[in-house]
Every structure is written in structure tokens, then in C-alpha cells.
Design a protein around this nucleic acid. Sequence first.
RNA 1: GGUCGGAUGGCCGAGUGGCUAGGCAGUGGUCUGCAAAACCAUCUACACCGGUUCGAAUCCGGUUCCGACCUCCA
Length: 488
Amino acid sequence: MKDFKIYNTLSGNKEVFKPIKFDSVKMYVCGPTVYGEPHLGHARPAITFDILFRYLKHLGYKVRYVRNITDVGHLLNDADEGGDKIGEKAKSLQLEPMEVAHFYTKKYHDAMSKLNVDSPSIEPTASGHIIEQIDMINKIINNGFAYEVNGSVYFDVVKYNQTNNYGVLSGRNIEDLMDNTRELDGQSDKKNQVDFALWKKASPEHIMRWSSPWGDGFPGWHLECSTMSCKYLGDEFDIHGGGMDLIFPHHEAEIAQCCAANKKSAAKYWMHNNMITIGGQKMGKSLGNFITLDEFFNGSHNKLKQAYHPMVIRFFLLQAHYRSTIDFSNDALQAAEKGLVRLFNALKTLNNLNPKQHSTIDISDFELKCDQAMNDDLNTPIVLSYLFDLVKIINSVNEGKQDLSIDDINKIKALTHKYVINIFGLSNITQETNSDSIDGLMKLILEIRNTSKINKNWETADKIRNTLNELGIQIKDTKDGATWNYKN
RNA sequence: GGUCGGAUGGCCGAGUGGCUAGGCAGUGGUCUGCAAAACCAUCUACACCGGUUCGAAUCCGGUUCCGACCUCCA
């Protein structure tokens, strides 16, 4: 437990993880804005931090994991007007904004559930914490780090930076930011371009709005995470996670808000997953190449050659380290699918191995090696490589080329269950039959085929094999007779 | 333009100053009436140019290319 290292964006180094309270961990991860179909980009942080959540629990910590739902329509463009995503969607569909948010929240939950992402401990919504956000704004104003103009409230970054470091996380310095920030393309109420909104006055046509001491409006787009993490995890908590694209400005602003309000910088460890690409290209709304999770699951996108089981996507993501970019392509996904099937076939084989008196192969250090890989900043691809070494061993034993004792078989069972099922959250994608009548039918058909084979009636035997194949059922002739399974 | 990261074999993707990552594909084999499946074995590598070192894919410098953020995004 003491050797668990994670990469902290704050320091730029791997650090030994030490929770603030010895036996419990408090973590916060930025969740989705629910205005559109959940897509591949949502899967990466969800799965990365699901693995972390599971691993921390496995290490024996009590974990409180908070992941928000952003259901407040923040401005598309912080500079001035521009619509908000949820509001725009609601207008175009002629729906109440909360109908839009609810619809996509449900879709997100469905997709996460298919990916076997565990539900976090708390999943708060931004709209449910308007009062808390207003309170936090007041704190920041009272501490002198925010100002009100025309019904909007802005964070005074320049003033904040005199006593704090705006840029601790992202490594930016304020002078560069001042130089680089674009010319205002409209009149802005902000004192400086680097300032960001804590509260925005709602224009008459803005449909998502709440009343506040500064008039009708809506909270700024960095505030909810600061507010909700403080509310449920305290002013100081252990881990804050999210995608790398959020480092600046979102997480930088969160730190500033928390310091300005509470004089404490919120999280001790900041963890960021890298992005995904599709065919080597960044996936993004603006590029129009994003593929929704549903499209992956049913193969309906024109860039996909087939449907991919959610577990294939999960497995595929685990084959890369979370801080590397990962490229999605049909070739890579098909490779992952085969690898996943092979892994689970071996686990099935493992249950039927004949133990011998002594093992001819030493498996004693596999668990240690797996643990070490996980402790090294969640190196899931290395763990998988060890698991595939075990696959090879299991198959060799099954072939009679190696022996394993009952003790060692049980050790392997425990180890694979711990990693494959509990920590990685994978499951078998091969369809198992669940119908007695199908089982009986197949048994009959295979018997008839076997009789044909004995009688050297190849025509009938092959017809059975080929027809079943066309129906999606694969016959496998083995030494011990024929078996069958559904093709994926 | 500023800040940061990357370039690994046919594809994906780890890693590291000397010791085979792994998956998929390919090739060879086992099995089979034939095939498929399954299993076993195995080939292809570290962008380019210099430097440090007994030794570099791994460290340092330079070059080229790619990407991320700076603007909504996971």
C-alpha cells in the first residue's frame, strides 16, 4: 500500500501516494457536460479513474469518489455572448433544458454501465448546487479576489497572482497569458482578459437562469467543480482527476477559486488522462470525426468495419497507459478483441486443468510483478503482459507440456480473478448459451454430424458445419469431440 | 507565436543505459477426412545527425516531422 506511486501534474513527477487521512481516500473527477451523445472521449477518463477507484479500494482504502454531472449551460465563449450548449440544444429541440440534460445523463449512465464503469460514490449536478456556488462567489468577493460588473462577477486573476501563483498546475505565467490572449472581439466587462467569470448575467434569451445577489444569471464554467469538491470532500482532499485538456484553464481556475475562497488549494494530487485519437487524428466535435459509444457498440459509424463490444473498448484502453495518447482504428480494435477472447478462453481452461504433484514452472512472483506494475502509476499494459504470460502457461499445462500443482493453480485463479475481474473490471464477451432447448438441439445436431463423419458422409457433415456457420454458430472439432459457440 | 509532450517492428502499444514487454497480423508446426478454431514456436524495432559512455532505442545537443493546450471539448 505504501509503494503506490502516481504521477502528479502539480509536481510533474511520480509521487508516493499518501492520503491525508491514513485509511481513506477522497477523489474528485470532472464528469461530462450532458448536452450530447456520450462518445469515446468520455470513456477514457471514466475508465481510467474507475481503475483507480477499484485499485484504491483493493488496497484497502475507504474511497469517496465524486464525479459531477454538468447540467448547467455554460457559455460557449467566455469573452461575451455566444450560446450555451444545453440551452442551444433545448431550443433546437424545443425542450426544457432539464429534459436535454436528463436525456443525455441517462445515455451517459447507460454507456458507462455497458463499459462496466462503477458508479461513483456521489454524482452531484451543477444545477443542484447553485446556492453553494453563490456562497463561494461571495467568499471570493469578500476575500477581495472578485469584482462585480453589470450583473456579472469576475475572478481577478491579476490580483490573485500577486499573492498566489496562477499557473502552478499548467506551468503558464501570467505575462505570457496577457500577451497571448486574443483581442476582445466585443466590449468586455472584464478588467483583464485573463479574468474569468464566476457568475454571468443572463441575457433575456438565455433560458437557463437562476436568481442571485447580482441579478438573474448562471454560474461560471469552472465554479461547480470547486464548489462540489469542497462540499463533499472538504477544502483539502486527495486526488483530483480529469482529461489533460482540462489542465488549463479549467483546473488552474479551480485551484485559484479554492485558494481565493478557502486559502487551501483543494487537491493534493492532480491526475490527468491523455486524449484519444481516431486514425491518428484528434477526435473532436469541431472536426466532426467523433464516434459515439453507441456507434461503437452497434458498429453503425461509417468508419467502423464492425460493432465492438464495450469490453473490447475497455480492454483496448487498458492496453495503453492512461497518460499516453491512444489511437483507435479497426485493426487495433480487432486485435484487442482477439486478445480479450484469448484471455478469457484461458481463464476457462484454467478451471479444467488437471493438477499434478509438483509444478514444473515457477509462478510465485507473478503477483508481485503485477502489483509493482500497478503501483507504478497504474501501469495496466504491463499487468496485461504478465497476464498473457500466464495465459501461455495455462495453455501449456493444458497441452501437457508443463505441470502445475493444485496450489499454484489456485494461486493463478486468485490472481487472475483479482486483476481481470475485480480491478480491470473485464468480463467475457463470448456468448454463453442460456437455454436448455438450444443446448439439446445442438447436442443432437453434433451427434448427427459425428455419425455422418464416422460413416465418412462428408457431404452431410460439411453441410451441417457450413449452415451453422452461416447462422453465426461455430463448430470446433477437438480431440474430445466437437464443441460449439456463437461467433462474436 | 507562446507553453508542453511525442516519434518504437506490418498494426496497436510498454519499457529502459548492457538482460525476449505484451496483443494482433505474418511464417512454421501440432491437431483434422478436409477446413476452421484452438494451442505451440518464430521473424521484422527503437525518426535523422552529432556527442557522453566499455556499452544508448534509453542520457545530452541539434534537425525534421507529429500532436496537445493557449478557444467549447474527455
